[in-house]
Design a protein around this nucleic acid. Structure first.
Length: 584
DNA sequence: CCTAAATGTCATCTG
DNA sequence: CCCAGATGACATTTA
């Protein structure tokens, strides 16, 4: 279902890409630039695609798109170097002179935007691709597909070229941007190749439009990725095939989107993520430690994390609420935390775990403290047994244990066994050593009271030693529990953050897709305008100029010149190279 | 009986 | 310096 549409869209993209490519070429963008690297990347992509199932398909699409995109980008980037301080206004003016409607003017301006594309160079694209794949792998849930393709509610892609309301950039905006971009101008608007093509040259804007899925499929499928890399040839074929058909906006967009997303992904992951995110994460960890402090309020961990992740906070707030549910469960455990899991259940444990609540322990067991013996109280007996501590070493244990069971028989015996089993090793040891108070007390009593308690009894060195060990171990046990809870909490928080980040990433990718889409639209418009203008030009004899021999070029002063192709090509090359150098 | 997860224990560090 | 708590590493128990 979705896949098909996606795929088709992707294929459609190809045509678009081809067109753009040509444009780029016309502009003077060099394919050489990307060729080599592209191929390699593509191959890699293919491999990856093969490796994974659906994801692969995605990746594949993305790769293809990427490849195409790269071409485009590469071209655009190179073709539209900042070199040319061209005025947008100039361009617009020039166009109008031709008798174009205002709308057209705007359109013309839009092309300038292409300059924006430049930023996306091959490397980035590649990274994007990688990132996308990664993303796909990662987010099975919020599958990138959903995001990318289904993404926005009123997703433009699905609808049409018409920009979605949400679309960040609409044409108007784009124009604005274009002006800002101030791309250079002396570039040739479009060049040769487009015209050279029969279909295109003759007339039509159509060629500019993205090709249909069908055309895409045919061309693309057959050609395969490698084909993409050899634009010149492909262009011809692709154009022919694709030519007349209506463009599939979605397809092209999607592909680009894919590519772009990839790039975004990369950026997010590699660049943005590492530094920023990493720092955040680090903070979180720190906070965690802090959390430990807060142990009492496990949630604090959340808060802390939030604080750290505040960057994502915007989303986090929402997420936090959402995640909070998840975390909440967690928090309960943890926060409460440390209150030990109800499961455990030895009172001791509970108390202990709860730790931090010595009183509780007192509650439960104070009574039997009698030095006399724990056995006094029935209830205590059982429980008390547990608490009653036992001997340390296994020898004692063994000795102790047997007796009880042996002595008591029947239900009682069973109970005893049960209780024994319930007793911790330290309890057994305490009992074996005849320690007069419960482990609970030993462990949970505040230092003062603990010392007081010890002072009340005449204890042997061995007993004192055991008591100290019991206390130490008991404390540590609780500490370990808290520590683990905290750790778990931290992990949950991190997971939540990851989700938030993924959401952000997806959102950014969507936005990128939309931008690219609008950019592409503008390019198409520019191209169509170019063709229209060029088509209306007549020489002294009233005959149209041959697109193969002439090209329109924007002059620095805003005028549009008709110049011989050769010159145009030369200039295009120059422009092409400068940008490269700059980038490096 | 084996494995993995849960717990407990110990050694260290830290505040 | 002592203590309690935190935590990594290892041991033991539990499921």
């Amino acid at each position: 279902m979705g896949w098909e549409s996606h795929i088709t869209a992707a294929s459609a993209d190809i045509d678009l890409i081809d067109i753009l490519w040509r444009q780029d070429i016309d502009l003077g963008a060099g394919r050489e630039v990307f060729d080599y690297s592209h191929r390699q990347k593509e191959q890699d992509v293919e491999k990856e695609l093969r490796d994974g199932g659906e994801q692969d398909t995605w990746a594949g699409e993305g790769a293809e798109a990427l490849a195409r995109n790269l071409l485009v980008d590469g071209e655009t980037g190179e073709s539209f170097p900042a070199q040319f301080p061209a005025d947008i206004s100039s361009i617009t003016e020039a166009v109008p002179s031709e008798s174009e409607p205002p709308a057209l003017q705007n359109n013309l301006l839009s092309p300038l935007l292409t300059g924006t594309e430049s930023p996306f160079d091959l490397e980035q694209q590649w990274q994007d691709l990688m990132s996308i794949m990664e993303m796909q792998a990662m987010e099975v849930n919020t599958s990138a597909s959903e995001i990318l393709y289904n993404a926005p509610p009123g997703d433009p892609l699905s609808t049409n070229y018409s920009l979605a309301p949400n679309t960040p950039i609409n044409q108007n905006v784009s124009l604005h941007q274009a002006s800002l971009g101030g791309c250079s101008q002396d570039f040739l608007l479009f060049s040769p190749e487009v015209e050279s093509l029969p279909v295109a040259s003759s007339s039509t804007l159509l060629p500019l439009a993205p090709s249909n899925s069908t055309s895409l499929n045919s061309t693309f499928g057959s050609t395969n990725l490698t084909g993409l890399f050899f634009p010149p040839q492909l262009n011809g074929t692709a154009n022919d095939t694709a030519g007349p058909e209506l463009p599939d906006p979605l397809g092209g967009l999607l592909d680009e989107a894919m590519l772009d997303e990839i790039s975004l992904m990369d950026l997010a992951i590699e660049e943005g993520f590492n530094p920023v995110q990493a720092s955040q994460l680090e903070e979180e960890f720190d906070s965690d430690s802090g959390l430990s402090l807060d142990s009492s309020h496990s949630p604090s961990s959340l808060s802390s994390s939030e604080g750290s992740s505040s960057s994502s906070s915007s989303s986090s707030s929402s997420s936090s609420s959402a995640s909070s549910s998840a975390s909440s469960s967690f928090s309960e455990e943890g926060a409460v935390g440390y209150s030990s899991d109800s499961e455990t259940l030895d009172l001791e444990e509970a108390e202990g775990a709860v730790g931090y609540q010595p009183e509780y322990s007192k509650f439960c067991r104070m009574s039997y403290q009698d030095p006399a013996q724990l056995s006094c109280l029935p209830y205590l007996e059982h429980v008390g047994h547990n608490h009653t501590y036992n001997m340390a070493p296994s020898a004692l244990d063994s000795a102790d244990l047997p007796p009880p069971s042996a002595l008591k028989k029947g239900s009682k015996e069973k109970q005893a066994d049960f209780l024994d089993k319930q007793m911790s090793r330290d309890e057994h040891r305490a009992r074996a050593m005849k320690i007069p108070f419960t482990n609970d007390k030993i462990i949970n009593l505040p230092v003062e009271e603990f010392n007081e308690l010890l002072s009340k009894y005449q204890l042997s060195e061995a007993q004192l030693s055991l008591i100290r060990d019991i206390r130490r171990r008991g404390k540590n046990k609780m500490a370990a529990q808290n520590c683990r809870k905290r750790k778990l909490d931290t992990i949950l928080n991190l997971e939540r953050d990851v989700e938030d980040l993924q959401r952000d990433k997806a959102r950014l990718l969507r936005e990128k897709v939309e931008f690219l889409r609008s950019l592409r639209q503008m390019k198409q418009k520019v191209q169509s305008l170019y063709q229209e203008v060029f088509g209306r030009l007549r020489d002294e004899n009233g005959r149209p100029y041959s697109p193969s021999q002439y090209a329109l070029q924007y002059a620095g002063d805003g005028s549009v010149l008709l110049i011989p192709r050769t010159m145009a090509d030369q200039q295009a090359r120059r422009q092409e190279r400068k940008p490269k150098d700059r980038r490096k």
